[in-house]
Simulated assay, not measured.
Amino acid sequence: MTTSFLLIVQIILVVILVIAVLLQKSSSIGLGAYSGSNESVFGAKGPNSFLAKATFLIGFLFVSNTIALGYMYSASAQSSVVDNMVESTNVEAPSSPTPASQADTSPEAPAVK
């Protein structure tokens, strides 16, 4: 239950982080052109400092959530997939070889002339 909630939060954080990075101005205008008219809303410096702080905060939340998800998944998974496959197939070890005292019933090699 908790891991599924954190996984949903992770997906939401990824989408928000991608949008925040794409809205920042770069050397080529990119999607930052759409935020040009809103510069007065964010203050005299424009959206650059606001978007930089927001991107840092979202990135920090993303990394924290990733660490929490990794810890929860590793704590819940005590056995590997290979262990589960071996247990489900119930593979038995091969039987021990027959003792040398028993007669060998294999055919003999043909004689070379």
Results as ranks from 00 to 15, higher is better:
residue 25 K to I: 09
residue 26 S to Q: 13
residue 27 S to N: 08
residue 27 S to E: 15
residue 27 S to H: 10
residue 27 S to K: 11
residue 28 S to N: 13
residue 28 S to I: 12
residue 28 S to A: 14
residue 29 I to M: 12
residue 31 L to S: 06
residue 33 A to M: 07
residue 33 A to T: 04
residue 34 Y to Q: 11
residue 34 Y to V: 09
residue 34 Y to F: 15
residue 35 S to Q: 08
residue 36 G to F: 15
residue 36 G to L: 15
residue 38 N to W: 15
residue 38 N to P: 01
residue 39 E to W: 12
residue 40 S to A: 14
residue 40 S to H: 10
residue 40 S to N: 12
residue 41 V to R: 13
residue 41 V to G: 04
residue 43 G to N: 01
residue 44 A to K: 14
residue 44 A to E: 12
residue 45 K to H: 12
residue 46 G to C: 05
residue 47 P to M: 15
residue 47 P to V: 12
residue 48 N to C: 08
residue 48 N to F: 15
residue 50 F to G: 04
residue 50 F to C: 09
residue 51 L to W: 01
residue 51 L to I: 01
residue 51 L to P: 08
residue 52 A to P: 06
residue 52 A to M: 14
residue 53 K to V: 13
residue 53 K to W: 15
residue 54 A to Q: 06
residue 55 T to A: 05
residue 56 F to W: 04
residue 57 L to H: 06
residue 57 L to A: 15
residue 58 I to W: 02
residue 58 I to G: 00
residue 58 I to S: 00
residue 58 I to C: 10
residue 59 G to S: 08
residue 59 G to I: 00
residue 60 F to W: 03
residue 60 F to Y: 07
residue 60 F to P: 02
residue 62 F to V: 00
residue 62 F to H: 05
residue 62 F to Q: 07
residue 63 V to M: 15
residue 64 S to F: 13
residue 65 N to G: 05
residue 65 N to F: 06
residue 65 N to R: 01
residue 66 T to A: 05
residue 67 I to G: 02
residue 67 I to F: 02
residue 67 I to P: 05
residue 67 I to T: 09
residue 68 A to N: 08
residue 69 L to A: 05
residue 70 G to D: 07
residue 70 G to P: 01
residue 74 S to W: 11
residue 76 S to H: 12
residue 76 S to C: 00
residue 78 Q to P: 01
residue 79 S to E: 14
residue 80 S to A: 06
residue 80 S to I: 02
residue 80 S to N: 01
residue 80 S to V: 01
residue 83 D to L: 06
residue 84 N to P: 03
residue 85 M to Y: 13
residue 85 M to H: 00
residue 87 E to P: 00
residue 88 S to F: 13
residue 91 V to E: 12
residue 91 V to C: 09
residue 92 E to C: 01
residue 94 P to L: 10
residue 96 S to E: 12
residue 96 S to V: 09
residue 96 S to H: 09
residue 97 P to Q: 00
residue 98 T to A: 14
residue 98 T to H: 07
residue 99 P to R: 11
residue 99 P to N: 07
residue 100 A to V: 09
residue 100 A to H: 08
residue 101 S to H: 09
residue 101 S to W: 09
residue 101 S to E: 10
residue 102 Q to H: 13
residue 104 D to L: 04
residue 105 T to D: 09
residue 106 S to L: 07
residue 106 S to V: 04
residue 107 P to E: 06
residue 108 E to F: 09
